[in-house]
Nucleic acid binder design. Structure first.
Lengths: 144, 144
DNA sequence: TTTAATGCAAACATTTTGCACCCTG
DNA sequence: CAGGGTGCAAAATGTTTGCATTAAA
């Protein structure tokens, strides 16, 4: 986690971008709540609760930047806003979203990469990334 | 296509919903431009161009309804708004999105369903649907 | 006729921008 | 101290809602 923040510094410096207090706070918040798949509003609320007041504009600017330089990835769970998580290298990584309680589970299945690679090849696409959301009902919710 | 519109009528009637002129126009527009993966604004613009003025509220209400009753599916290409396409039964259906020109290609790969089914099982999820977007550069754009 | 659907405009939610000021490098 | 970063508030998007009116069944 501390190492991640240091890496953030390196990545920023290597691009002549500044390592500011706000960027550190925002990035740390994403790391600290990796389970939660935070959205911009939630990041704002959590920082505020800790007495760190950061303007929403700064949060959105930082998030966009983090995504652009590959520190964070932007994910969509079928809502009207995006969520953000630390960029994960794991192969075949995606999310299972419960339609009842909203819970989000991560998964990683190496078979995905193979299938997606061949889909790309079949369509003459140079692949960059993919985004897979699986919707259903989680263990607890499917009972009811 | 005409058959599809009739099916729309049946589905609506079976739920005591009304088969209105506006709903027909909106649904026909989605069918007619199935390649285009229209968004709400585009549907509004196309209908207006044809001299059919439909309020945006009606378009959004119809789209939400169509999605709810399974006539249309809502897809997300990483933009700030949704696109809509006729609900497609094809197994393992997803989209390839070109990061340069924005072109959207559909694909269907039966292997996907197997992989996704086993991911669901492994996580005790009762699957409902999935959404897969693959981002990259299309044949034309990857050259440059 | 009765009930759902529509249009309009206002309200909302999310994200972006312009600009004066501030801080990191 | 130069140039990027921040805050604020206003604007831009995208979508939803309340309410009076219209049109299916």
């Amino acid at each position: 986690m501390k190492a991640d923040v240091e890496r953030m510094g390196e990545v920023l410096r290597s691009r002549n971008l500044k390592v500011t207090k706000m960027r550190r706070l925002i990035f740390e918040e994403i790391l600290a709540s990796s389970e939660a798949h935070l959205d911009a509003g939630e990041i704002h609320a959590r920082l505020r609760r800790k007495g760190k007041s950061v303007s929403v504009a700064t949060i959105y600017r930082a998030l966009r930047l983090f995504v652009r330089i590959g520190l964070v990835s932007q994910v969509d769970f079928g809502e009207s806003h995006s969520h953000y998580e630390r960029e994960i290298a794991k192969a075949g990584h995606g999310h299972l979203i419960c339609l009842a309680c909203g819970r989000v589970l991560e998964f990683a299945d190496e078979r995905m990469d193979g299938v997606i690679g061949s889909i790309g090849k079949a369509n003459a696409f140079a692949l960059d990334k993919f985004s897979l959301q699986i919707f259903g009902y989680c263990r607890d919710c499917k009972k009811t």
